[in-house]
């Protein structure tokens, strides 16, 4: 009883949290390496072989740097803002299913922290809190570039959230459940990844995900060429690092959710083809991580390739293209569901 209700969840939380934080740190290295290779460079090479220890050096550097608070800043909000940005990104992982139930040391253990029956709604609602970190950081800095950036960020996040949530509605229509585990199971029983059922939803979700994580080509809030770094201009040291942790954690969240919704989560490719059953030798969670990695790689690839949208073009794309498409997609999904 005690073990099932307290120890195992606590252990899971601990493992997931640490894995995410380590993953985020190495995400930075991955980004630098991938972009460097795209650009005919080597990327970090000095710390450790091929620079693999670079993240550790980065962390040490950021932790030992001076934490500057501008004199005119709103101290309280200024210190809290990075945390507000980071925490929602981390607690989303509570409902991400990394794998099915497996037996471990003679005990049935589910490879997810919890399975809420409103899991998808939980993801969306928690993600919607993250915007506060950015708005407040920009406002509390009491500086003009960050303020412009935080206004951009909030407008951007709110408008893309609508489109993303709309696509999730069509996913719910397909899966018939809000639970993240349920959605993976639905893909297993319907024997198809939803990427092929809902390609438009996938596209909108991915573009919206890029915009919601403030990644290129939608990185207006931090656009260093325009707003000199945007909302974190006045930040330094560990607080600055927290914003980056949040950004990369959000990337991982979007990738993990996209994997769960569209690529069948932990399912191996072609789960219904018996001839490929040797693929089951690879543990389910490895499939999940591999698919998530593919998304993360696309994030970086896009950043290295595309120029940046302009703020008004981004808003126009969101409101005039993605949201109508998403609504049309919901309607069509509903019709198909009713008619078939």
């Amino acid at each position: 009883m005690m073990v099932d209700q307290v120890v195992i969840p606590a252990l899971k939380i601990l493992i997931v949290l640490n894995a995410v934080l380590v993953g985020v740190t190495f995400m930075v290295l991955l980004e630098r390496k991938v972009i460097a290779w795209t650009q005919a460079r080597l990327g970090p090479m000095r710390v450790g072989p091929y620079g693999v220890l670079q993240p550790i050096a980065d962390v040490v550097k950021l932790m030992t740097k001076e934490d500057i608070t501008p004199v005119k800043a709103d101290r309280w909000v200024f210190s809290v803002a990075p945390l507000i940005a980071l925490i929602p990104a981390l607690i989303v992982f509570a409902v991400i299913p990394f794998g099915p139930e497996v037996s471990l040391f003679g005990r049935q253990v589910a490879l997810y922290i919890t399975d809420l029956n409103v899991g998808l709604l939980y993801v969306v609602s928690v993600a919607s809190i993250g915007v506060y970190g950015i708005i407040l950081a920009g406002w509390a800095s009491n500086s003009k570039f960050p303020l412009l950036a935080s206004l951009r960020a909030s407008a951007q996040l709110i408008s893309y959230e609508v489109a993303v949530t709309m696509t999730l509605v069509s996913m719910i229509v397909s899966a018939g459940t809000l639970s993240m585990v349920g959605i993976v199971n639905a893909q297993e029983s319907q024997q198809v990844w939803y990427l092929f059922v809902q390609p438009l939803a996938f596209f909108i979700f991915f573009v919206g995900g890029l915009a919601e994580t403030n990644r290129a080509p939608f990185d207006m809030p931090e656009a260093e060429q325009e707003l000199t770094g945007g909302f974190h201009t006045e930040y330094s040291g560990m607080r600055f690092a927290l914003f980056f942790l949040a950004e990369y954690a959000n990337m991982i969240v979007v990738s993990a959710v996209a994997t769960t919704l569209f690529l069948g989560g932990w399912l191996r490719p072609f789960p219904n083809v018996a001839a490929l059953s040797f693929l089951d030798l690879v543990p389910a969670w490895c499939w999940f991580l591999a698919k998530t990695f593919v998304f993360l790689y696309i994030f970086l690839w896009v950043r290295a390739t595309l120029p940046r949208y302009r703020y008004d073009q981004l808003m126009r794309l969101g409101w005039k293209v993605l949201i109508p498409l998403a609504i049309a997609n919901v309607v069509v999904s509903g019709l198909v569901k009713v008619l078939l």
Binding site: V118, L121, Y122, V124, S125, V126, S128, I135, S154
Partner: peptide, 25 residues
């Protein structure tokens, strides 16, 4: 009441209050 809880966070905390913050700023 998980559904209402999620809606509360999504609509109130994530939507309405952002509007307030906007206006205040």
């Amino acid at each position: 009441s998980l559904f209402v809880a999620a809606i509360q966070v999504l609509v109130y905390a994530g939507g309405i209050v952002v509007l307030y913050l906007f206006v205040v700023m």
